[in-house]
Write a protein that binds this DNA or RNA. Sequence first.
DNA 1: TAGATTGTTAATCGATTAACAATC
DNA 2: TAGATTGTTAATCGATTAACAATC
Lengths: 220, 220
Amino acid sequence: MANTKNVSKAVVNRLPRYYRTLRELADQGIGRISSKELALQMDLTASQIRQDLSCFGGFGQQGYGYSVDKLIVELERILGVAGSQRAILLGVGNLGRALLRNFDFSYCGVRPIAAFDTAQTVVGSDFRGIHVHALQELEEYCERERPDIAVLCVPADKAMDMAQRLVKNGIRGIWNFSNVSMKEDVLGVPVQDVHFSDSLMTLCYRMKDTDPFDEINEIE
Amino acid sequence: MANTKNVSKAVVNRLPRYYRTLRELADQGIGRISSKELALQMDLTASQIRQDLSCFGGFGQQGYGYSVDKLIVELERILGVAGSQRAILLGVGNLGRALLRNFDFSYCGVRPIAAFDTAQTVVGSDFRGIHVHALQELEEYCERERPDIAVLCVPADKAMDMAQRLVKNGIRGIWNFSNVSMKEDVLGVPVQDVHFSDSLMTLCYRMKDTDPFDEINEIE
DNA sequence: TAGATTGTTAATCGATTAACAATC
DNA sequence: TAGATTGTTAATCGATTAACAATC
């Protein structure tokens, strides 16, 4: 019945991927899976999967494996994505719009409830039913609606001030798309950075192996 | 003079963050830094930083530390982001547009040279100087221009086919924004997935600690 | 029942940290 | 020169893998 044992960071990092894979399996109509099969699918070892899951409880059954649906529900509980957190989005530029229009927040158990911007051209418009408010209404809105998460899509130079303003207004977590690193210990709430550039750089690094011009890939 | 020694995955994962931090330091006009100071800034240990960097060579100087500029250049070489790779973007929806308009490709040494879509409404338009071609021109274009990287922003159901088509046309790496996991060993080129949802879920997980409604966060 | 597969304990492997001689 | 800081070797710590009794 333990909620958390001693969950290492490495395990936590794998949880979203477990969740994603299991959702895909469920979509394919697969109702149960063994650690061995799942390992094959995810390029892990069966041992590791059993070890990881056992941090949170015994969800499997000997001789049978794991129920996909049950595991999904458990992972939603573990990840805390089942609680229908309420999110507001700051900065309705191209990226903000792309998120409002295309991103499936509900997949993560998050519900976007409002957006904010300063530009007259977007204030008052709606994206997929989400209304864009003038930024000056932020304080009043937060007091009334008590959102949990802020999706930060403002320009880099405005990001830090905005983050502090949000925390002051009761925001409990920041999903940060502005390309600025924020010190969590200063803000006092979790900040999850999305660094597109890290991802692209990792791709470039991994492409070096296949680079026809890179002949100096020798050891020593 | 070693190009690569035995670089573990953990080290590689930290490289983009080293690069980002050093660029920030350079922007602040800081010309040199010791492993101790850098460790403080990045929440690592000085030992780890020296260990990590020494995988690629001895870039520091006893009694002095590291030259920020020199380290940036070295990291660009190590990461392979200095080669000005050429990228094409597939799928000019909101996300594709957001990337074309806002993302600083040059930060990663990548140069976007063209975009492709099927919709008559966007074909022929330009975003920051990048022209949107009709998708049917892809083959001809690739043969002529030989792009290295594909930025995949097409809908999930088109992603896998498109990826295979791109590889057939000589693409050597895929930056994948479509929410579909691709088997690299099938494609034969590196694929770097951008999973927004993983990031948002991790935020939700980390917010659990501060959740006022979550009283059962006990050990055992 | 027999076969399969779990959860967990022990063994191995790898990554991080500490320490220190070399030297700028 | 003396103080500072590197690169590297050895020690510690943690994470992954292997093995197996328990049991569905």
